[in-house]
Design a protein around this nucleic acid. Structure first.
Lengths: 179, 179
DNA sequence: AACGTATATGTCAATAATGACATAACAAAG
DNA sequence: CTTTGTTATGTCATTATTGACATATACGTT
């Protein structure tokens, strides 16, 4: 079973979700399109790791709400105990920056500004998620411990925020380099 | 032409390299295996963006040393002016952390330690590359400007170091969270 | 009225990427 | 003396991922 499949199971530990929601919710951690997610959900259902109920809707299209089975939960626990794959990062910006001397400072700055805007939007999104779970949580977030259902999401937002801040620091520094 | 192909051209702006070297050198910026690189180099050669010379070796296998053509350089400049794709990150750790409450603190710490070690090794590698280009450079690195052939690599190492430091800060913080 | 966006699920062809296989010569370690 | 690692290039089957196509309803905008 591939890593994305485990990722879908992982999201389902918090609550039941539709394929549509899973596609959206997994984006911050693993970029994938719905055309990849839906077939994987069908596989997971065949394996007995998830089950779904049809939910007819009048105003919107009908949906399938997936939830994790006990077998699915066990599969997740075994997966966590396995060695973790190294992260895969593919960033076109890095490839451009390597040969950025080919263009003018003005052109280079354009590339940089575009990316800076992207990082700022990311940061904003993380801040929103942080506020959302702050409301959702009974305890203050700093007091959450590992077995709290919000713990994972909370520490992941911390990680993402630290990294995007590093990216923004780099952007600022680069702007001084490029006058 | 795909992004990796431009990445290969980008590396060749600094100096000529073999397919074997390109495979190694591109890893920090874009993870790819030699089985993907070699066919792309053949394509780039057919398009006239690179050319190669056979270099026979007695102690080691013969090699092909690729270099960038003027057409290749032009293609690169046009590519830089295009909008930059958003980075793709696929990190199994994030998926595990999301549901880390399924396992014990001890198990969670194992996962964390494994990744911390990985980040430390990364940091060490970046430090080595930094020292290497420091020696290679005529000027102090802080004084490099955009058109210096080492500029791109220098600023990329700064970026990578900032990010890996953020990752290590998160690991330390997580260790306190997991006692 | 026409258009874009959000919700919602799905298939399928094409492309990207990996893992395994193949070859070969030398060096170092056990 | 055998195994393991490094250098070096390549192919090919399989898997992962994307992009396009398909369908349907509702809502807000031009």
């Amino acid at each position: 079973m591939n890593t994305l499949s485990y990722g879908l199971l992982s999201l389902l530990t918090r609550n039941s979700r539709t394929g549509y929601e899973l596609t959206q919710n997994i984006q911050p951690f693993w970029q994938a399109k719905h055309s990849q997610i839906y077939p994987l959900l069908a596989q997971l259902e065949q394996k007995g790791y998830v089950e779904f109920v049809h939910v007819p809707q009048s105003d919107k299209p009908d949906k399938k709400v997936y939830s994790l089975t006990d077998n699915g939960r066990e599969a997740l626990q075994q997966w966590i105990a396995q060695p973790t794959d190294e992260p895969v990062v593919r960033d076109e910006l890095a490839l451009k920056v390597f040969c950025i001397g080919l263009v003018s400072k003005e052109q280079a700055l354009k590339v940089l500004y575009e990316r800076e805007e992207y990082y700022q939007k990311k940061k904003e999104k993380f801040a929103q998620t942080y506020e959302r779970i702050k409301q959702e949580s009974a305890k203050p977030l700093e007091e959450l411990e590992i077995h709290d259902p919000l713990f994972g999401l909370y520490v992941l937002i911390q990680k993402a925020t630290l990294k995007v801040d590093a990216d923004l620091v780099w952007c600022e520094w680069m702007k001084t380099k490029l006058k």
